[in-house]
Structure formats: C-alpha cells, structure tokens
C-alpha cells in the first residue's frame, strides 16, 4: 500500500511540474546571457567527473539528449543544463540551425 501512495504522489508531481518545466524553458529562450553562463557552467561541471568532450563532437540534437542524460546523472539544475546546451550548440559549428 505504501508503494501505491508513493506512485500516486509521483504521478501528481509529474502533472504539476510538467507545466512548470515548459514555462521555464520558454523563459530561457529570451535570455541573451545564456551563452556566457553556459560556457562557464560547461567548464565547471563536466570536468568534475570526466574529461570534457569538444562541442564539435556532437550535433545540436545529440547535445540536447546528452546534456539531459548528464542533468539526471550529475544532478544538474535544469536551467544550468539549458545554458550549457545553448553554449554547445553555438560552439559546434553545425551549419543547419533551427
């Protein structure tokens, strides 16, 4: 029964927080300082566990997924990860931009 309560609580949190996550993502799009913060966060956080990969190693789409993976694994705040993604996408010289 305890487990059912845990699952119910988790489902409720999922519903409430999904809206907040989308709102935060929209807000971040308008911030011109993201690139600077992203470069700083990239330099400080990635090397805490492993050598840093060059931004050119992955495409925009791959960096988005890879950074989300690291957000979960390294407990990085979501806004910091969005900053890092902006920096990596701007630094990988991918020709086709969305």
């Amino acid at each position: 029964m305890k487990i059912i309560k845990y699952i119910m609580a988790a489902a409720l949190m999922t519903t409430v927080s999904a809206g907040l996550a989308v709102e935060a993502a929209e807000k971040a799009k308008k911030d011109p300082m993201q690139l600077v913060r992203g470069a700083k966060a990239w330099a400080q956080t990635c090397s805490r566990c492993h050598n840093m990969r060059a931004p050119k190693e992955l495409t925009d789409e791959e960096w988005e997924v890879s950074a989300t993976h690291m957000r979960v694994r390294a407990n990085l705040p979501g806004d910091m990860v969005r900053d890092i993604i902006v920096f990596l996408k701007a630094s990988n010289n991918e020709k086709v931009k969305k």
């Binding site: 988790a10 949190m13 999922t14 927080s17 999904a18 907040l20 996550a21 935060a24 989300t68 957000r71 979960v72 705040p77 979501g78 806004d79």
Partner: peptide
C-alpha cells in the same frame, strides 16, 4: 525512465 518534473527534480523509475 526519467521524468523531468522540474528544473530541480527528476523522477527516475
């Protein structure tokens, strides 16, 4: 499965 609930919370199942 990772549910990105919030900037400061992820639910892993």
């Amino acid at each position: 499965l990772n549910f990105l609930l919030h900037d400061n919370a992820t639910l892993v199942v």
